[in-house]
Simulated assay, not measured.
Amino acid sequence: MDRFIRALIQWQALDRPAPARSLTVREVRRRYAERAARWCEGHVPQPVATVANQLIHGRGGKFGVRTYRPVTDRNRLVTYLHGGGWTVGDVDTHDRVCRRIAASLGAVVVSVDYRRAPEHPYPGPLQDAIAAAEWAAGAFPERDHVIAGDSSGASLALGVAMHHRDLGGIPFAAQLLVYPPADPDLKSESIHTYGAGYLEDIDDLRWYYEQYMPDPERRSDPAIDLLGADHRGLPPTVVGTAEFDALHDEGVELANRLQTAGVEVQHIPAPGLVHGYLLMADIIPAAEAATRELLAAVERTLASVPML
């Protein structure tokens, strides 16, 4: 394990964080936001040309998007969906991530402040994600469009890609799925090996699913049970996993199933790292290096896309 990650785990253990289900949703959100802020405290954010916030209309009402324009624009577009168990996280917690993507890929990045569970359970966040991708494609046309997300945001990103595949909608040039939750049954070996003491607790994962999809009978929907979905015809995909992540095996299995279905896949492992490493790139060199590798894989995919 990376020595900085080990120190981070030891520091958090001393803090003795309470289980999510013992707190209010507001308290869990505040804790997540405070942790994300601590991990980038004192570090200068990646420069971009402009940042703009606005409200757009979805199927269930208005929600926010934050648009980043890169200093060097390479005619690319990324619709980004933040992680946080469909329940926590927002465009502020993932501001640094989106700045890195914009600068690295030369892309306009539309970060989606989708409405969250439990106030807006499934399919609410997914509907907002679909609407945001459609808005982005209309606002920034004729660009190589990447649908991307981390953790629960990766689940939403794949749901968006499947929706547009099925309806003949946006022809995404690529998708980026970073440590995706792919199996709501939480039965993989890594769930039990790394489901306690590695910053992501198995009971918290169960709690997130309960907020997003309260009815267990509906968790077989392909937009939630990603391993059971039809993966044929999806865009070239970069899947990122972390070695000491409870969701590691699900990400590996998803990458394998996508490849078996004929999808071009690049699996980028992150040795020594844990779930959430994208948010740690300012303070942990290995996390910064893994983030660079992910974006380099997306760059390779986009480099092979014919010019629009």
Rank of each mutant, 00 (worst) to 15 (best):
P141S: 09
L156Y: 03
R219V: 13
G195K: 10
H192Q: 09
Q175E: 11
Y122L: 08
P118R: 04
A139Q: 04
L234N: 01
A117D: 05
Y114T: 11
S104Y: 03
L158T: 13
P121W: 02
P171K: 01
G124Y: 13
T193G: 04
Y122N: 08
H163W: 05
A136T: 05
D225A: 08
P141T: 15
C98Y: 05
I224A: 02
R143S: 12
V178N: 11
I191S: 04
Y209D: 01
G124V: 14
L234Y: 01
G106D: 03
I202Q: 09
P214C: 09
A132V: 03
P171G: 08
L199G: 06
A137G: 08
A102D: 00
R232A: 11
L205I: 14
R115S: 09
L226E: 00
A133E: 00
D95N: 01
C98N: 09
H231E: 00
A229V: 02
S188K: 02
F172H: 04
Y179M: 11
I101P: 02
P236E: 01
Y114K: 08
A196T: 13
A129C: 08
L158R: 06
Y114Q: 07
D215A: 12
P118H: 06
P141F: 10
R232W: 02
G233S: 06
G153L: 11
Q211K: 04
D150N: 15
E210D: 15
A173N: 05
A137Y: 05
I147G: 07
S104H: 15
G233P: 03
H145G: 10
R96Y: 11
A103G: 05
D166N: 14
H164I: 04
V109M: 00
D203H: 12
D113N: 13
S104K: 05
R143A: 09
Q211M: 08
D113P: 09
L177I: 13
P141Q: 06
V112Q: 03
S190V: 03
D128G: 07
H164L: 02
E210Q: 15
T193C: 06
Y122K: 06
A182P: 05
A133N: 01
